[in-house]
Design a protein around this nucleic acid. Sequence first.
RNA 1: GCCGGGAUGGCGGAACUGGUAGACGCGCCGGACUCAAAAUCCGGUUCUGGCAACAGAGUGCGAGUUCGAUUCUCGCUCCCGGCACCA
Length: 884
Amino acid sequence: MGGAGILRSSLFPATTGQVRRMQEHYSPEAIEAQVQRQWEEADCFRAHEDAAGEPFYCLSMFPYPSGKLHMGHVRNYTIGDVIARFQRMQGKSVLQPMGWDAFGLPAENAAMQNHVPPAAWTRQNIEQMRTQLKRLGFAYDWSREFATCDADYYRWEQWLFVRLLKKGLVYRKKATVNWDPVDQTVLANEQVIEGRGWRSGAVVERREMPQWFLRITDYADELLEALDGLDGWPDQVRTMQRNWIGRSEGVELEFAVDGGEPLTVYTTRPDTLFGVSYMALAPEHPRVQALAEQDAELAAFVADCAQGGVAEADLATMDKKGRALGFTARHPLTGEDVPVWVANFVLMEYGTGAVMAVPAHDERDHEFATKYGLPIRQVIAPADGAEVDVQQAAFTEAGVLVNSGEFDGQDSEAAKAAIAEHLEQAGIGRRRRNYRLRDWGISRQRYWGCPIPVIHCDTCGAVPVPEADLPVRLPEDVIPDGAGSPLARMPEFFEATCPECGKPARRETDTFDTFFESSWYFARYACADNEMAMLDARADHWLPVDQYVGGIEHAVLHLLYARFFHKLLRDEGLLASDEPFTRLLTQGMVIAPTFYRERGDGGKDWINPADVELERAEDGSVKAARHCEDGQPVVIGGMEKMSKSKNNGVDPQALIERFGADTARLFTMFAAPPDLSLEWSDSGVEGAHRFIKRLWRAVHEHVNGAVPGTLEVDALDDAGRELRRKLHDTIAKVTDDIGRRQTFNTAVAANMELLNDLGKFPQDAAGAAAVRQEVLEGIVRMLAPIIPHVTETLWQALGHDDLVAATPWPQVDEAARQAAQETLAVQVNGKRRAEIAVPAGADKDAIESVARNDENVQRHIEGQNVVKVIVVPGRLVNFVVKPQ
RNA sequence: GCCGGGAUGGCGGAACUGGUAGACGCGCCGGACUCAAAAUCCGGUUCUGGCAACAGAGUGCGAGUUCGAUUCUCGCUCCCGGCACCA
């Protein structure tokens, strides 16, 4: 790989012997472009299926091409690149691809604003962002790049959709959307602000529309149960997915209604069945709709409930309101009549659109009952016999049944089973497993997305587009105007003939949810050039992804949909594995300080941190801030996620131009562990830059000094042995930090410590130059994944002809790590009183006696009874004493 | 509202399996170099008291378990992420 000719560049003209000249000062602009050229000429990041070494697929979530790279991208992609380069140095055959999640709403918004078609805007953004990514030196195999808006990509999801449709995994039903009555268009949740459309300002209505759905609930059990095996995922993410799927065991039962269909409800608490004091129906419930036709007041109430957006957070926090419907339902066990209400908090899309209300033992039911004066009847008592007043607050825990007829005295668990059994016997109920997870609605009334390949025929219904006619291409020279989907107004797009009967028909104008594209892109990278098939055998060579890196905000939706798609592809025979991502790293946000000034009208003018000067107190704490230009004070607003709205974004481009890619990479890796939020700091960036300069200088001084010669371990003095011990301790730590713990910040810190120790290492120590050579080579290789450009240059300066990017990771010399002595703390009653040194491997008795004889320890145990001595070898000694 | 996180010096963070709290970096203070400044280098830096040795306090708040708790348990406060049409 690579030729020596490439490496003997003008920077390092070949000289005699080991020593090469290097520039005295570190200048990133000079070396980064040149090093990138070397990688490119060696083509060293192209993945080969037949390469030696175990395959390792390292993937970072692909970006939405919004225009410019932001710091969040820099962080995400640096983490992925560090892992990929580290694994390469471990001898793995690494695939690290990159591409573009190119469909989505921002392109439509930009189109409206700038009068540019989304396609042109998106492709231009891709060009710009690709250049920026290349400038950062990521080790991508660019030959596999694609954008999801390419027909070569989306044709395969159309193809898959047709197969799923034929298999019965796709169906059509009505679902609720945000409807803007002024713009006559469907809004995304993000476009609904305080219940109003973001452009029109009109009060948004919930409206039902026919939509395509994917039966993800068919896979709910597998998606849930397989989480237990995903031990390379953070527990936090697995827990969130478990709760999202929300499997529950309960009972479905009927409440009879005089002169009408019985009402079916689902409950996970059949033990509270005797406490039902009313029933509540969703405003969209067919029964309510029917009554409203006759009752103007009810109709007005239902219309009022339909105001506002569909987002769950809005629905869950709105005021609970309801209305009696004027009829009753019969309690299946007591035969009592309970009133039936309509309530805005009951959702038609969950379960049956009807709930049995037990106000004594459910908080939401309690709130509603209190508001409308409905009875609250206790049927569960605390198991410990404590008194509770259910009129005051719901008692929602399990307990012992009371006021429940023949079931009195049973505990909740037993009663659930007994009541379920009773209902089944009586033929009015059955045990059921229920999920919170709903089927995935994949239709979007949007232009900039993948067309859904269906033709609607008056005679034949919804007919899939025949395989031979795929792809259904999205016309690209279109500028949306915000008033509904442009496709629905383009006869040249929607006019079609029915593939079955040949009569004139109408093409579907909805497009896929953009999560569709991101649910399988990781597999397509394995065979992006295949024009004949969605996936081929190369997919199983690389998949599952060994390491996936991306933002925590994707913990549920994207990651659940991708897992689901992977299983769909498996069941189509396209993949062999069960899960897409073996190991997952979820990275935190990038945040920065905010500054503002109040405007006269109560609004705020946000000021970019770059334009603000800080005033500090003696101890360094920030006292005040003022604007650089006018010198007048500004308000300090705290740390927030970098955003346009708070004007606290830092453009990575400026950072790279000023300090170079390596500094940008080092700062993002050093400032925080990857899963925590990363706080932007100008001086932190300068600190990272300073460290690189120090490393450069250390190598420069070394290569201009004594010729190292061969390292002779036995000839070293104490200083040499001590430094080598530090080196090999550091290699062990950094290997673990990067490989297992993924705490890149501590890996960097350990190398900083090692370089500090090297700085204190005496020049005249025995074999000093050889030890220095070993230490510098170690640091250069350990930091190569993080700061690849400068280490590439330094590696060559240290006398190597190969690329550090393709060099094996340093090995730990266990012999060098043996220490003669160890220090441990001595505590008396848990308070540290001394530090002692003992020979390595000393036994407990020996350690205790050294500790006991320490002067300060003596002072503290004198005149006391030593009741216990705890000796933890290598750690500490603790004397537990009591006054005599 | 529901689900999931987080909180440690002036600041970002470290402490990996319950075992010396504050590694590393920033900032600040002092010094060296310089005509001077920048850059760089050296030293100090949790707080309180003390010249020091040392002592006391200390990991968001309140309890608990333990010889020993930043770490485990219970109850709070504040901040952040997600909530199915932002990606």
